[in-house]
Amino acid sequence: MAVLVYNRSSEWTQEIYQALHDRVLPDPENPPAGLLAHIASPDERGGWRVVDVWESEADYQRFVEDKIAPAARELGAPPFDTHISEIYYHLIP
């Protein structure tokens, strides 16, 4: 089942996001298996947020373990809060 993944950190900046993005998604034409949508923006409360739609939570967790976590450690990126919920309905034209 598809899931919505909401990541947020008051300590993240556009520069931190971009550095991580450049490492884990270097080619937007070749997204990781299971990624359906990816949106990043500043958070109105400060910091940064990233919202994804994945085909499954397992696809997301695999990407975190294989790509995001190692790259974040390498960058010394601050932690972020993650919330995952099943999607009832989505339309991505």
Rank of each mutant, 00 (worst) to 15 (best):
M1D: 15
M1Q: 08
M1V: 12
M1H: 14
M1W: 09
A2S: 14
L4N: 08
L4R: 09
V5A: 03
Y6C: 07
Y6W: 12
Y6R: 09
Y6H: 08
N7Y: 01
R8K: 05
S9E: 05
S9F: 07
S10F: 01
S10L: 09
E11G: 09
E11S: 15
W12C: 07
T13C: 11
T13A: 10
T13L: 12
Q14P: 00
Q14T: 05
E15C: 06
I16S: 10
I16V: 15
I16H: 10
Q18L: 12
Q18D: 13
Q18I: 03
Q18C: 00
A19G: 01
L20N: 02
H21Q: 03
H21V: 03
D22A: 15
D22R: 14
V24D: 00
L25W: 03
D27K: 07
P28Y: 02
P28K: 13
P28A: 11
P28N: 06
E29R: 13
E29M: 12
P31N: 14
P31H: 12
A33G: 03
G34D: 10
L35K: 13
L35W: 08
L36E: 07
I39W: 01
I39V: 15
A40K: 03
S41G: 15
S41Q: 11
P42L: 02
P42K: 07
D43P: 00
D43Y: 02
E44R: 13
E44S: 14
R45W: 09
R45G: 07
G46A: 09
G46M: 07
G47F: 11
W48E: 00
R49Q: 11
V50M: 07
V51A: 06
D52N: 15
V53N: 04
V53F: 13
V53D: 05
V53R: 08
V53Q: 06
V53I: 15
W54F: 13
W54S: 08
W54P: 04
E55K: 14
E55I: 05
E55A: 14
E55S: 14
E55L: 09
S56G: 05
E57C: 11
E57N: 14
E57D: 13
A58W: 05
D59K: 12
Y60V: 01
Y60G: 00
Q61P: 00
R62W: 02
R62C: 05
R62M: 06
F63I: 12
F63G: 04
F63Y: 15
V64A: 12
D66H: 02
D66N: 10
D66V: 04
I68Y: 10
I68T: 08
A69M: 14
A69Q: 11
A69C: 02
P70N: 10
A71I: 02
A71L: 05
A72V: 04
R73E: 12
R73F: 01
R73I: 09
E74P: 02
E74M: 00
E74V: 01
E74W: 01
E74S: 03
L75R: 04
L75S: 08
L75M: 05
L75K: 02
P78F: 06
P78W: 04
P78A: 09
P78D: 06
P79G: 11
P79R: 10
F80R: 04
D81C: 00
D81S: 13
D81W: 05
H83W: 12
H83C: 08
H83Q: 15
I84V: 15
I84Q: 04
I84L: 06
E86P: 03
I87W: 08
I87G: 11
L91T: 11
L91Y: 15
I92G: 06
P93E: 11
